[in-house]
């Protein structure tokens, strides 16, 4: 466990020892802030029955930032170590591959969680000024964050996998973006269509990460999509582990 925490701290430190981490965080904050204030203004002009978390987490702003930031966070995890050779010194220390993988994954997830934290605070602060649970419900804010984290786990696992298969951070980023987009597109159609009329669309809606986050933002935590996301996360982590083990294949 000590080794895991040593690696985890180093991983997190890696984000902040160069400008990269600060650039990712500040860019995400600018975008999130702009998007958030836009939604608050719209609340005044266009009456809606949606709560603010639902409006935010089902908007294209959120998914744009989410789909773009995930590869940026994870692309360095293994690819950078491989390209500057430190992968060799890391793997010849008495650490096991799971410890390395989980520290990279958890480091990325922690960083990802930090990016979304300010949005939650903004919502809670807004709630202090508008005493209306129909606009911002406090449990809704927490369940939204939970949903964002669950989807984040999946995207960080996809990112770790992409980074483990290549030496190039650019390739890792592109692969991660493509796979992440693919998972998002699974449920894309169901986002717009009526799910009751078409079985295929209904099936896809069950696999939709967008629908899941939207549901969470309404305060509903459904275990089925949760299980789906966790299974897929574990699947990608397992495949990544196999990729790490590959060098020990005879």
């Amino acid at each position: 466990m000590n080794i895991f925490f040593t690696l985890f701290r180093r991983e997190l430190g890696g984000y902040f020892s160069s400008l990269n981490g600060y650039v990712i965080i500040s860019s995400a904050l600018v975008l999130v802030g702009a998007c958030f204030s836009d939604l608050v203004v719209r609340l005044n002009t266009h009456p809606t029955d949606m709560t603010l978390p639902t409006m935010f987490f089902s908007s294209w702003y959120f998914w744009l930032i989410m789909l773009l930031s995930s590869p940026l966070i994870t692309m360095r995890s293994f690819a950078k170590e491989k390209s500057n050779g430190t992968y060799e010194t890391l793997m010849t220390a008495p650490v096991n591959d799971w410890q390395v993988l989980m520290s990279k994954f958890c480091g990325a997830l922690f960083f990802y969680a930090m990016i979304w934290m300010p949005v939650m605070f903004s919502m809670l602060i807004l709630r202090m000024y508008i005493d209306n649970a129909l606009i911002v419900s406090i449990p809704g804010v927490f369940t939204s964050y939970f949903g964002v984290l669950v989807v984040g786990m999946l995207y960080m696992a996809i990112g770790c996998f992409s980074s483990a298969v290549t030496k190039s951070q650019i390739v890792a980023g592109m692969l991660s973006f493509t796979l992440g987009m693919g998972v998002f597109m699974l449920g894309y159609r169901s986002f717009f269509e009526n799910t009751e009329t078409n079985q295929l669309v209904e099936l896809m809606s069950r696999l939709s990460v967008a629908a899941y986050v939207e549901e969470c933002s309404r305060g509903i935590i459904d275990t089925r999509p949760l299980l789906f996301a966790l299974t897929l996360t574990f699947f990608f982590l397992f495949v990544t582990y196999q990729v790490l083990q590959r060098r020990r294949w005879k």
Partner: peptide, 14 residues
Amino acid sequence: IGYMPENNPLNPDM
């Protein structure tokens, strides 16, 4: 063991 690989890779930001 203590192993120093070829080209001596180190974490340059530390």
